[in-house]
Amino acid sequence: MSLEQFSSLLTASTHNFATLPVDLLLSSEGNLQTFYAPFDHVNTGAGVVICGITPGLQQASRALEEARHQLRNGASIDQAKQAAKETASFTGTMRKNLIGMLDHVGLHMLFDIDGCARLFDTHRHLVHYTSALRYPVFLDGQNYSGSPSILSRSSLRQQVDTHLTEEVRMLGPKCLYVPLGPKVTEVFQHLQCKGLLRAEQLLDGLPHPSGANAERISYFMGGKPREKLSSKTNPTVLDAAKARIIAKLANLNREGI
């Protein structure tokens, strides 16, 4: 989408973004559809990247609303895109759960801040928010949640091999990555195999911060005892992941990042 199209669409549209306009459709592959939303901004000075699967409808709508608001108030397109991404990324319950888990493993201590909530307000300069799939993807009209596999569909893999790959190269070899959930971890392992980043840069194993993962999140943070877990939660996997993340952070604290 050209800058002119972006500006014209957002300043002229009266759409309330409860659904995404057909004007924003980027590609279709079977029952998968990819739409544009302003998640292009890359914070090249970030020390840590928080990476989800793809923006959902709620996040895309908020980003579009914020971009339109910014443009109508005289912001440049780059300023509008930055504000849109910062406003919409990991909103709602997801943000609260994410902050709780990151604080629990001690990420905030690495950056000498009082808590990871600061990564969403006063210390946004330290973090880059992104997704394995930069632009929102829908499966049969519903938010795409990682199945079919990202790497198994050409329209999805293309986003990884272009947008996400470009971001990793821009951010450099010292940046840390927090992939949210096993679907995103698989993508970063793909990038690792291509030599784009090292295992030490990956803080993988956090449960996805979606409200649907409440039990896993609670156990990860020590809120639910092992004996009360349902069969859907594997405590051994979560324990190993937490220990691995904490060990990596301890090592980074010793060496400096």
Rank of each mutant, 00 (worst) to 15 (best):
G211K: 11
A132W: 00
S13Y: 02
I53R: 04
I113S: 01
R153A: 13
K174L: 12
R62H: 10
G222M: 08
N43Q: 14
L133S: 08
A117K: 11
L133E: 03
S76C: 02
S2M: 06
S230N: 09
L64I: 08
G146R: 00
Q82G: 04
G181M: 08
R226D: 10
P207F: 02
Y129G: 00
K194A: 15
E200L: 09
V105Q: 01
P148G: 00
L107I: 13
P38H: 09
S2V: 01
I53S: 11
L110E: 02
V187D: 02
I245K: 01
F138M: 08
R254D: 10
T34V: 15
C175T: 15
L197C: 06
K232Q: 14
L102T: 13
L3I: 13
G223A: 02
F35I: 05
P225V: 05
P207C: 05
T162P: 10
F138I: 06
E215F: 12
V42K: 01
A60T: 00
Y144R: 06
F111Y: 15
S210W: 04
L107W: 03
A214I: 09
D40L: 02
L156I: 11
T54Q: 10
P136V: 09
R72I: 02
N31Q: 11
A214Q: 07
A117M: 07
P55H: 01
K224F: 00
L164N: 04
A75C: 14
F90N: 11
T236D: 13
E65V: 11
H163W: 09
L164R: 02
S145K: 15
P55Q: 02
S28Y: 03
N143I: 01
F35V: 09
V160G: 10
Q59G: 05
